[in-house]
Structures are given as structure tokens and as C-alpha cells.
Simulated scan of single mutants.
Amino acid sequence: MEIRQLRAFVAIAESGTFTAGALRVHVTQAAISMQIRQLENEIGARVFVRAPRHVILTEAGEHLLRRARHILREHDAALDEIAELAGAERGRLRIGSASAMVLTDQLPVILTELRKQHPAAEIAVGSGTSESLVEQILAGELDIAFVSLPVDARGIQTERLSEDQLVAIASPKHKLAKQKTISAYTLAGERLILGERGGNTRRLIDQFFAQAGVTLHVAMELSRQAAIRRMVEEDMGVGIVPLQSVRDEVEKGKLVRWWIEGAE
């Protein structure tokens, strides 16, 4: 049983498909399939059952996943300790970010300073949802990540770096454009333009409205905040987004912003 096989197995188990798993460990789908076959031959049991759009862990796979995560954490910790003996300037830092704003604005500045202080250090950066990044930390694949709180996982230390707030946005042409606040129940009657399921903002939106006992009418699900803003500007519906992402458009009068009653 090899470390690369365990990394491949964990990557597929967490991402849900062989294709996504191969992308995570930077190999071809054929190569990762071969690693899993070799792993199954060695342990004498199947670890996955293939479904139409994803894979399902077998009972043996579920047991192996817990062990594999532990083995990989210990393996990476040993490598890090040895690297420290050689000096911090030759260490490794693997960073993940669930925030496009962090990746675009803050992180380049941070990494530039790190490069100046530790020019020989190996620094890797990746992106994903908060949930997937937390799983990668637990699996020993990341050292640190910028995610949305709360994080419900043992063994993860968190520190609040900044705060944002969900707001509703609409075109200035909207009939309620002059309002300052809006209720969850009023939003439920609107054609909503939201981010895709699985994203951090969408997770918080779904949690908020589930707690309010409200069912939403989602007209569009888009992967990028810029696309949501443009659709709302054209009065195609109402959006719910982080306040920081629409400050410029609100100040320029392209969008109106409503505070959502009960949202933090």
C-alpha cells in the first residue's frame, strides 16, 4: 500500500468522482483508476461502487478512509518536522481559499511578502468551497485555508479575520427599490438569482432561509458573483450576495441594496 494510492483514494472519496479526484492529485483519470485497482487488489476488497454521476464508498472503503486520513496526516507531519530541521526557509506551505476576493486582493500581497522572507520555501495555493477545504486540512492536504465560519469539525483551529453580511440586491427599476430593508418572506416571493449549490455564500443563504421556514423561488443559479450582479442590474431578478462584493455598484447607483431582516 503506497502513499500515492492512499492520496488518490482519499481524493476520490472526498470529491465524489474519479475525474475530480484525478484533478486534485494532478494525474490522469487512467492513472488514478490504475492506482485504485492496485489498492483494491492489495487489500482484497472493493472500495468504491460506481453510480451514474458519482462513486459510493463500500463498507471496506469507509473503514479505509478513516485509516488513510490518519496515515496521510502522520506522513505529512513527519515530512514537515524533517523540513523544519533543515530550516524554515526551505519549508512548505499549502494554502486554500474559499473566497475569490481573498485570492484576488489580499493573498497576492501576503505571498509576495512570504517570498521575500523565505525565497526557497515551497508555497502552493488552491481554491474550493469551505467544506472541501476543511476536509483537505483534515486529510493533511492543506496547512491553512481562508473559509467561511462556522467550521464544525474537530481538530480545526479558527480565527476570524474579517466580517461580511448578506444583503439582497435589485435593479433600481424594482418596485421596492426605495426600501431599506426586506423580510425573508418578501424575498420568498421574488425571482431569486443565487450562487450555485455547494458554494459558501449559497450554503449560508440556504441555512438562513431554512431556519426562517421559508421556501425560495430560485430562478437562476450562477457560478460567479459578477454574473449575478449583471443579471440583477438588468432586472432579471433579485440577488443575495455578500455586501463587500457589491459596494461599488451600489455607490454608482447600478444596484439598490436591502438589509435582510434577521440576517447577520
Rank of each mutant, 00 (worst) to 15 (best):
E2Q: 08
I3A: 02
A13F: 10
G21C: 11
A22Q: 08
R24I: 07
R24F: 06
I32N: 03
Q35H: 15
N41P: 00
F48R: 02
F48W: 08
F48P: 06
V49W: 04
R50A: 12
R53I: 04
V55T: 14
I56A: 07
L57M: 07
A60K: 06
E62Y: 01
L64S: 00
R67W: 00
R69W: 03
I71T: 14
R73E: 06
R73P: 00
E74D: 13
D80G: 02
I82V: 12
I82Q: 14
I82F: 09
G87L: 11
E89F: 03
R90G: 11
M101W: 06
L107N: 01
L111Y: 05
E113V: 09
R115W: 06
K116L: 11
E122L: 08
I123E: 07
S130Q: 11
V134I: 15
L142Y: 03
L142R: 07
I144W: 04
Q157G: 02
L161N: 03
S162D: 10
E163P: 03
Q179S: 14
Q179A: 15
S183R: 05
L194V: 15
N200L: 12
N200D: 15
A210N: 05
V218F: 04
L222N: 08
Q225N: 11
A226L: 10
A226W: 03
A227W: 01
R230M: 14
E234L: 15
G237S: 11
G239C: 09
L255V: 13
R257D: 00
E264L: 13
